[in-house]
Design a protein around this nucleic acid. Structure first.
Lengths: 122, 122
DNA sequence: GATCCCCCTTACGAAAAGGTAAGTACCGCA
DNA sequence: TGCGGTACTTACCTTTTCGTAAGGGGGATC
């Protein structure tokens, strides 16, 4: 489960926020969109090695439901879909800032390696 | 899984922080210890209705491993065990502040109810 | 003597999350 | 004709997480 609720009832704001962020790749998606502004599906996919198409679409749909991500579909062939952050997504990213800094500090403290070349610290 | 790693490799600080916070009751434990300073096992248990003893001990052990929680055992009969936040636990709580505020805002926005009488907002 | 309290541990099972692989439908390129 | 690219969907399976229920060992209380 980890956190199954999705849409409360919550015990506090942290609960409500974690419900929206937890998911193996959501933090990464948030970060990719923060950095690049707009990204297509395949760009996101290539940007985060290891993610499957299934998980990526699933996470993106949930984040769209949660009002964090905007999905723009262009009626073209071949299809083009662009993802970007909504206002709420951007404020969430700001709220995650201190947590990212804390995590970075922890990584330094514990000597935990980073996975990729790109090391955002939220 | 939700997030299985536990001790990296991480892609960023947010990853590293979420790894430590995710777990159904961890936010709540953090909050209880923040508010009360020191709490015994049974006090924590009573403070968060719905948690099982198994999950509570399991989460507390992990948080102890992660250096967030200090566990003090008194060689008495009946046994007495006191839990409190470490320095890292307290700084984590501070880093969670903005996230809790964001979550609270989201709850208000979406009209999501809170579960208990006590409504911390991290 | 029976029950309750303390702080757990263990075994078992259900549910959720995630991974793998294949299929869809259409197009451009060689 | 065959392959790669676009953005997915679906079915199936494994891993992880969480919950339930029971036990344990000693002491105090009824």
């Amino acid at each position: 489960m980890a956190r199954a609720p999705r849409y409360g009832p919550y015990t506090c704001g942290i609960d409500a926020a974690l419900d929206v962020v937890s998911g193996k790749w959501k933090g990464f998606i948030l970060w990719e969109l923060e950095v690049h502004g707009v990204r297509r599906f395949a760009e996101l996919r290539r940007g985060m090695p290891g993610v499957s198409e299934k998980m990526l679409t699933q996470h993106l749909r949930e984040m769209e439901e949660d009002g964090l991500v905007h999905r723009e579909v262009y009626a073209e062939v071949p299809p083009r879909v662009e993802y970007s952050l909504t206002e709420h997504g951007r404020t969430l990213n700001q709220a995650l800032g201190p947590l990212g800094a804390w995590g970075g500090e922890r990584m330094r403290r514990e000597g935990l390696e980073a996975a990729t070349a790109e090391i955002p610290q939220g």
